[in-house]
Design a protein around this nucleic acid. Structure first.
Length: 582
RNA sequence: GCGUGGAUGGUCUAGUGGCAGGACCUGAGCCUUCCAAGCUCAUGGCCCGGGUUCAAAUCCCGGUCCGCGCACCA
């Protein structure tokens, strides 16, 4: 191996062989945007299909496809408008940009500076005479710049309706919850998946396609009844896991080799749903070609967790010695649906019927308005609301002669007989429940990068160096190369016929007759084509061809008539090349 | 965003204030009966804009993009 890192060699290969490259290169390029070339688009499609097969179809979930642009109120509800907003203050002396809200929180008693309006934060900076953490220059009077990570646009003519490109695909699922739960016939649990683009106007995109401004996510939002629903852990109990728990992430922490079952029993993973998906996902990652020796699940540290997440684990892959996040598994509780329930016009709950209707005693009020109205005038409505709330929270307050409620700064006394207080027996068939959300969220681009990186291999064949991508046949963008042994009309005709037949069977086939046979094998090795078929002069007599496997370069002789069926089986994974007779 | 290094055919790279070179790749032909062989020919390049100069791909300024460090990654 040379001094060049695998990432550098991979980036060059990706550009040259059509996996991915900088977008709009003819116009100087634009930061943080990449185009997937013919091979990359095919690989990405195959990965998405594999994900869909496992996480949508395989779990009985439903897939939707929501718009990438959504109106402002959606993001007011989700918290992205405020939370995705960074307040940056730039030091006039040294030019360092600092998060102004962090500066205030670290140096004053303010705990949630992020939620303050910008002029107020500027005032606090001035009042406390806060200084640049780099050079110590005073920052009083320096304007705070607002930077929102969401791409803004306007919907329709004029600017009356602002919209944003979604910063995650998840909101597209959450906002449609009222309709989706109808589709799911109001029963929990149910899961909704979506594969699509998301956009973040990153301050500095980095490291090839690892951190871009437009990327593809594959997300599953599983809606569960917090009281009732549990996963079938027996299905994944024996799946091995490499874990990096929060408790190990100190100076010399180590990985924990365990299984899903043991990790749950030992309470390393406390949430059963998270445990279930870690198991399912580990098996999936292995199947699409992630090297399990360079894969782990890392638990988020307490301070790193999003505000809504009770527990959170990331899937991480190792790239040139660095661990990068390729998926997140979060239990989001009822955060998202509650927020949308508060902001939107519709109900973000599911009515859960009890096994048996329940009779409950409920404190109710039926205030005498002919008394309250004249007595309290404009406050009467507020008094009624206060009485209703009091009946619910403290029914014993109605045991006295009079009831006191506070409206604004005034305390109002109401004779208890005027409140219409009663304890009523009611029959309830069920209740409205805000489902909890379990979210496995996959970064498709990063998964693709990991698969390529882990597949990148170098070896020697007959004394010649060789570079190949050991991609799994299931996801390899080109499945088979078909060649005539050399340029010859009869061989070329036969090879073309075979190529056409295989294409009809839905396989991705490339035909190549240029250069000697070894060169053509190496071309396919470099893009990761798992199999090659060579038609020679004998083929014209015995109706058989040489099939060559990429990783081992081993060859087997197979009847032409068997090719389509054999390749279909090799692609699905139900057959391996070693098992082939030949 | 700050700092720093860089940008030459598709890819990798040499080079200089005075006609831009190589290797690999790619295409055509010859040769070739299974792993990048050989021969002939061909296509294709100095990131963008401004300045200095008789002359700029080269020097200067600004920008774009890439790598790295810091910050950021809800």
């Amino acid at each position: 191996m040379s001094d060049e890192t695998t990432s550098e060699k991979l980036t060059e290969l990706a550009k040259r062989r059509g996996y991915f490259f900088q977008s709009s290169g003819a116009y100087g390029g634009v930061g943080g945007f990449y185009t997937f070339g013919p091979q990359g688009a095919a690989l990405k499609g195959n990965l998405e299909d594999a994900w869909r097969e496992r996480f949508a179809l395989g779990e009985g979930n439903m897939e939707i496809d929501a718009p990438t642009i959504m109106p402002e109120p959606v993001f007011e509800a989700s918290g992205h408008l405020a939370g995705f907003d960074d307040m940056l203050i730039e030091c006039p002396e040294c030019g360092t940009s600092t998060r102004a809200d962090h500066l205030v929180e670290d140096n004053t008693d303010y705990e949630d500076a992020e939620s303050l309006p910008i002029p107020e934060v500027e005032a606090v900076v001035a009042e406390y005479e806060l200084a640049c953490p780099e050079c110590g220059a005073g920052l009083a009077g320096v304007a705070i710049e607002e930077f929102n990570l969401m791409f803004a646009t306007s919907i329709g003519p004029g600017d009356s309706q602002p919209g944003y490109l979604r910063p995650e695909t998840a909101q597209g699922i959450f906002v449609e919850f009222p309709r989706l739960k109808e589709y799911a016939r109001n029963t929990l649990p149910f899961g909704v998946t979506q594969i699509g683009r998301a956009y973040r106007n990153e301050i500095s995109p980095r490291r090839s396609i690892i951190r871009t401004r437009e990327f593809t996510q594959a997300e599953l939002e599983l809606f569960v009844d917090p009281a009732d629903d549990d996963p079938d852990l027996s299905a994944v109990a024996d799946v091995p896991l490499t874990l990096y728990p929060a408790s190990e992430q100190g100076a010399d922490g180590s990985h924990l080799e365990t299984t899903v079952g043991e990790a749950v029993a030992d309470e390393v993973i406390t949430d059963p749903w998270i445990a279930y998906f870690l198991g399912v996902s580990r098996t999936w990652y292995e199947r699409v070609g992630v090297d399990m020796d360079r894969f782990r699940y890392r638990q988020h540290l307490a301070g790193e967790r999003a505000h809504y997440a009770a527990d959170c684990w990331d899937a991480e892959s190792e790239i040139d010695g660095n661990w990068i996040e390729i998926a997140g598994f979060a239990h989001r509780g009822d955060y998202d649906l509650s927020k949308h329930g508060e902001h939107a016009d519709e109900r973000f709950t599911v009515f859960q019927q009890y096994d048996e209707p329940r009779t409950v005693e409920r404190a109710v009020v039926d205030p005498e308005m002919s008394y309250l109205g004249p007595t309290f005038g404009g406050d009467a409505g507020a008094v009624v609301a206060a009485l209703e709330e009091l009946a619910e929270t403290d029914p014993e307050a109605f045991d006295a002669e009079t009831v006191t409620v506070a409206v604004g700064d005034d305390d109002h006394e109401i004779p208890v007989e005027q409140t219409g207080f009663a304890l009523e027996e009611q029959t309830e068939a069920g209740e409205h429940v805000t489902p909890h959300v379990v979210e496995p969220s996959f970064g498709v681009d990063r998964t693709l990068y990991t698969v390529l990186h882990h597949a990148y291999s170098e070896d020697e064949v007959d004394g010649e160096e060789r570079t190949y991508l050991a991609l799994e046949p299931t996801v390899a963008p080109t499945f088979v190369g078909v060649f005539p042994l050399q340029r010859d009309d009869d061989l070329e005709t036969e090879a073309n016929t075979i190529a056409a037949t295989l294409r009809e069977r839905g396989l991705s086939v490339t035909y190549d007759s240029a250069g000697n046979i070894g060169r053509r094998y190496r071309r396919q090795d470099e893009v990761g084509t798992p199999f090659c078929v060579t038609v020679d002069y004998e083929s014209l007599e015995d109706e058989a061809v040489t099939v060559r496997e990429r990783d081992s370069t081993a060859q087997k002789r197979l009847p032409i008539s068997d090719l389509a069926e054999t390749f279909t089986a090799l692609r699905s994974g139900s057959l391996s090349f070693d098992e082939l007779e030949g």
